[in-house]
Design a protein around this nucleic acid. Structure first.
Lengths: 110, 110
DNA sequence: TATACATATCGCCATGAGACGATTTGTTAT
DNA sequence: ATAACAAATCGTCTCATGGCGATATGTATA
């Protein structure tokens, strides 16, 4: 199944567009962890977390390794952290902008 | 309305998780363009493109400027291009991995 | 002020995504 | 072989999203 550059971009970005999945990525950090550790860390059903992990895996964000009856996941490329840093930078710009707008309102109206 | 760091991340990444919106970003590049230029460049209804532009704008990805009866959009921060470059790097890893797997199959089966 | 133009918004439909519990698959331990 | 455990998959529900045409808003032009 062939997929355009935009298709791949969208696939990766979609995988990262869900809050729970972002938290999973955050939770993993640089570590390799099994599903049995991840599930209890979130207040979600095992099936839900498993699905999220699959999505991240299929997008090429996570690497999966099976060891006995456990399945272990870890972040595949440290590039991902670069990506999140850039997103945070853009988000920060956004937050500061809102803060400025809020201050302007407070000082003139309040 | 307060929003967590993860919330902001998800908002920005969601805005970028749609193929059409990625193409809009691509189409804009470093230029400022009006909706009347963007709409005909895509095979979509005007209302559809307008919605996509709003989503990108609300996520803080695009800047909006009204000039007479036109509305002009441009990419707000050059950081966005960094972001896309990182995504592409991850995507490339993914594509190369698939290619290797495909070659292995072809040489053993074909 | 009427008309045409540019864009946003609304209402609707079809599809996709996330959540869950139940079930299946696969592995170790008894 | 059976039981216990770990994780994936299935079926179903609900809500979000993308698409469209129609309509509303707002601006320049006649």
């Amino acid at each position: 199944m062939r997929r355009s550059a935009t298709g791949w971009r969208a696939r990766i970005l979609s995988a990262l567009s869900d809050p729970t999945r972002l938290e999973i990525v955050e939770f993993l950090g640089g570590e390799e962890r099994c599903v049995c550790e991840i599930v209890p860390a979130f207040g979600r059903a095992q099936s839900t977390i498993s699905k999220h992990l699959s999505i991240l895996h299929e997008a090429g964000v996570l690497e999966r390794r099976i060891d006995g009856k456990r399945t272990l996941y870890r972040i595949k490329s440290p590039r991902l952290f670069d990506l999140l840093r850039v997103v945070d930078a853009i988000a920060l710009d956004e937050i500061n902008e809102l803060k400025k707008a809020e201050e302007a309102l407070t000082s003139s109206v309040g």
